[in-house]
């Protein structure tokens, strides 16, 4: 005889009595695997409250963290990738862009906007990793260039939040030249004496590291981010040796002198506005 026995067959709970668990209420920390409540996550700036792991977030989340009352004006939102080379790999690039745009709701891998942080004006360009690995093609380059023009014209400090695998292969040499383009614009920004803050987040590699990400008046990074020029796999294959522990992390890059400091995302807004105040 069974210990428990159903006295009626079938499910007898009425629909209105069923407990609903909406999607996305909980999330698992990718590092410590502990469950994180969504509302707590937002309050905690998407940093795990148990292990301080900085979750990968998108440009909208960074804007909400930085701008007062999440109030900002987006710049050049309507720029989209053309397909100047008619590039086809496993699928045509033109199709890929449309698919990714539909899936992510983004037009490309970078959002630019201006607003106030702690009452101070700031222009921010923030990369979106979900859009083809945050890769830099013509749109990313052009949006950064225009955002810098905006900064120079109105004499507003400028910040880039990098999160990218590097240059976008499907735009080949066009992507490569965006490195020169963004660096040239930053030279003009620098000449105008306007502060530029570069925040490197997980991951920042390739052509992005080899251009605007490393050119800040201050380069700062979130803890534990992968930061490098060549990817770890490429280096491992080239030198045929295992890589040292902690290689190419923010802490490693700080230790070698290429970052000014590492910033916890929960203090980001304070640190950035403090810096702007000090140099203004």
């Amino acid at each position: 005889m069974a210990w428990f026995k159903r006295d009626k067959a079938g499910i007898s709970t009425a629909t209105e009595h069923k407990k609903e668990a909406p999607d996305g209420l909980w999330n698992k920390c990718p590092n410590c695997k502990k469950p994180l409540l969504n509302t707590e996550q937002i309050e905690n700036k998407y940093v795990c409250q148990y292990c301080n792991y900085h979750l990968r977030i998108d440009s909208m989340a960074y804007f909400s963290i930085l701008f007062d009352n999440n109030s900002f004006t987006e710049l050049n939102a309507n720029l989209r990738s053309a397909d100047p080379l008619n590039f086809v790999d496993s699928k045509p690039y033109a199709e890929r862009v449309i698919e990714v745009a539909e899936k992510t709701g983004l037009n490309d891998a970078l959002r630019t906007g201006y607003g106030k942080i702690n009452g101070l004006d700031l222009v921010v360009a923030c990369m979106d990793f979900n859009f083809i690995g945050g890769s830099m093609g013509s749109v990313v380059g052009e949006k950064i260039a225009r955002a810098i023009d905006y900064s120079i014209k109105r004499r507003i400090p400028f910040m880039i939040i990098s999160k990218s695998g590097g240059a976008r292969m499907m735009e080949a040499a066009f992507s490569l030249m965006q490195m020169a383009k963004t660096s040239a614009k930053l030279a003009l920004l620098s000449k105008a004496g306007i502060p530029y803050i570069s925040l490197l987040t997980d991951p920042t590699t390739g052509g992005v590291t080899a251009s605007f990400a490393m050119l800040g008046d201050i380069n700062i990074a979130e803890p534990g981010a992968l930061i490098g020029f060549a990817g770890p796999r490429v280096i491992k294959e080239t030198i045929k040796k295992d890589l040292p522990k902690g290689f190419q992390t923010s802490e490693f890059v700080l230790e070698h002198g290429f970052l000014d400091f590492i910033v916890d995302r929960r203090q980001l807004k304070e640190e950035v506005s403090n810096f702007i105040r000090l140099v203004s």
Partner: peptide, 26 residues
């Protein structure tokens, strides 16, 4: 390509190239 090695990363391969792009442009 620029060399992908441990020492190259330690000494800032990305920064070195980026700096040249900026300085050469002006």
């Amino acid at each position: 390509g620029a060399f992908p090695g441990i020492e190259a990363e330690e000494r800032g391969q990305g920064e070195a190239i980026a700096r040249n792009l900026l300085e050469m442009s002006v």
